[in-house]
Structure formats: structure tokens, C-alpha cells
Design a binder for these strands. Structure first.
Length: 263
DNA sequence: AGGTATGTTAATTG
DNA sequence: GCAATTAACATACC
């Protein structure tokens, strides 16, 4: 789930539910913590409301009133839920962080595979720099995108490399390359200025549209690759067979007719 | 039982 | 130094 559109959806969800109410309780599993200790996280959050959020790539930051920022990364299986009343079951619902507000509601961060991170940071910009993250994928104009991509390596691995640009993962990389009609194994050196402009235009369109639909796979256009992302499915564009290959160690789906093999 | 899964990092190899 | 590859992390599902 959690690539840029998913994390942006979580951000909007958090904005709509969890701001400006003081936090009463903080429960966190230690295996999900980054640099911060449980004690310090609890101390920083308890008694204070979250007041605003920011997102950079796949990271979500929530500003603690007059304090640091809560930093959340969702790994492969992270998500948020907000409700009133009894908290979800820590074990069965894989709750890694539970914030209880003083109005009886709670915000839970779930992460089945525990590959995500909960941390506390002073300043998101500095954190992003220290992590070596590239610019957010939606923050780039066409020229900056062309520059940041570089000329070495393969196009799919470059799109997914967070130090190059932040936010694109395996699913959306496949979608963007399908719609731009570029084979995932194409070398960056073989992309001319036109290709780069088209890739940039498609990237923005795909990410924005996905955000509009709440990153819900069931609500994404059937003209996209995503709903047909399985071997042997029919390409929504040409009716050909969707192919499954491995690129950069990741499972990759494409239409060999719409995305011709390089060289 | 073994393979696969929306992510990241460290170690290794060329 | 860079790019590509592999393993590791933890859990669920087919």
C-alpha cells in the first residue's frame, strides 16, 4: 500500500481526524521505533496535540504543538485507523503505535510486517537531508525531473531510488512506465528529452489521480495497468498479454507490446 | 512446504 | 566510485 499516494491519503486522513486534540496516552511497540526511545516518545507526545502534518516521499510528519515532529514510515504494510471507543487489539490488529486522545478517540498505526518506522525528529527538512532523500516526486518541474534522473542505470530502479526522488515504489513505478510506454529495463542514457518530459507528465498525472481516488486500488481507472497487474491478464490498452519479469530484484509487470524491449 | 508480497539497508560483486 | 545483486528484517497468504 504505502507509496506516495497512499501516504498522502494517510496525511489527509490524519489532518481530518487527529489534529488539535491533546494526546492522553501513548502506547508503542519497541520493534518499530527508530532512534527515539519509548520513554522520550511518550514524554514528547503526552499532554500535547498534533497541530499540522507534512509529507515527503513516503514519510509522514506530524508536528507536536511547541515540540518535535512525529515521523512515520509505513514500510510495506502500514496504515492508520481512527475511531472512538475501545482500542483495536494490539496483537490481532498489529497495532504498533496507539495515540489516545482526551476526547475518547484514538489513532492507531498498524503495521503487519513491522517494516515501518516510528520516530521523533526535530525538523523534517533536516531529517530528509540526513536520510539522503531526494526531492518529493510531486515537487519537481520537468527540467528538475530530467536533471535529477541522471543518465546512468535503468529507468525503473532510478524511479524507485529514494535518494533520486522520493515517493515512488514498485507498484507506481510499473504504472508510470506502462502509461509512458517505456520498458522498465530501458537505460536512462537511452531516454531523450522527449521521453523524459513524457515520463514526467505521466508521473504527475498518475500520482495526482491516485491521490484523488484515495489510493484505493478498487477506484483506480480500469485503463490503468494496476487493476490488471498479474501475469497473463489482458493489457487494458492493446489487449495483449501482461508479462511478469524481475527488475532490480523486484517483481515487475508490463505490456511487451506497449512497452517495447530495449535495444 | 515454498514462493511471494506496496520497503529499506548493508554487504558483496563486477 | 558506481551500478547491480543478494540477504536480511517480520508476517500473512496461496
Amino acid at each position: 500500500m504505502p507509496e506516495l499516494p497512499d501516504v498522502e491519503t494517510f496525511k489527509r486522513y490524519l489532518d481530518a481526524t487527529s489534529l488539535h486534540t491533546p494526546i492522553e496516552g501513548v502506547d508503542v511497540e519497541s520493534d518499530i521505533l527508530g532512534e527515539v526511545s519509548r520513554r522520550r516518545l511518550g514524554g514528547a507526545l503526552r499532554g500535547h496535540p498534533l497541530v499540522k502534518t507534512r509529507r515527503h516521499g513516503k514519510w509522514l510528519f506530524a508536528h507536536v504543538d511547541d515540540g518535535p515532529w512525529l515521523a512515520l514510515h509505513f514500510g510495506m504494510t502500514g496504515w492508520l485507523s481512527y475511531a472512538k471507543g475501545p482500542a483495536p487489539d494490539e496483537e490481532d490488529d498489529h497495532v504498533q503505535l496507539l495515540l489516545t486522545f482526551d476526547d475518547g478517540y484514538h489513532l492507531a498505526y498498524h503495521c503487519i510486517r513491522k517494516l515501518g518506522t516510528v520516530d521523533l525528529v526535530d525538523e523534517p527538512d533536516a531529517f530528509v537531508r540526513d536520510e539522503g532523500l531526494g526531492p518529493d516526486a510531486l515537487a519537481l518541474d520537468a527540467d528538475a525531473f530530467g536533471d535529477v534522473l541522471g543518465t546512468r542505470g535503468g529507468v525503473k530502479t532510478a524511479l524507485m531510488r529514494q535518494e533520486t526522488l522520493a515517493g515512488i515504489g514498485n507498484i507506481y513505478a510499473d504504472e508510470i512506465l506502462f502509461q509512458a510506454r517505456i520498458h522498465p529495463r530501458v537505460a536512462l542514457g537511452d531516454l531523450d528529452a522527449d521521453d523524459r518530459r513524457r515520463l514526467h507528465r505521466v508521473l504527475r498525472r498518475v500520482l495526482r489521480r491516485a491521490i484523488e481516488r484515495g489510493a484505493d486500488p478498487d477506484r483506480l481507472p480500469s485503463s490503468w495497468l494496476l487493476p490488471h497487474r498479474e501475469e497473463g491478464a489482458s493489457c487494458p490498452r492493446c489487449g495483449g498479454r501482461v508479462d511478469h519479469i524481475e527488475v532490480g530484484g523486484r517483481s515487475t509487470y508490463l505490456c511487451p507490446r506497449c512497452q517495447p524491449q530495449p535495444h
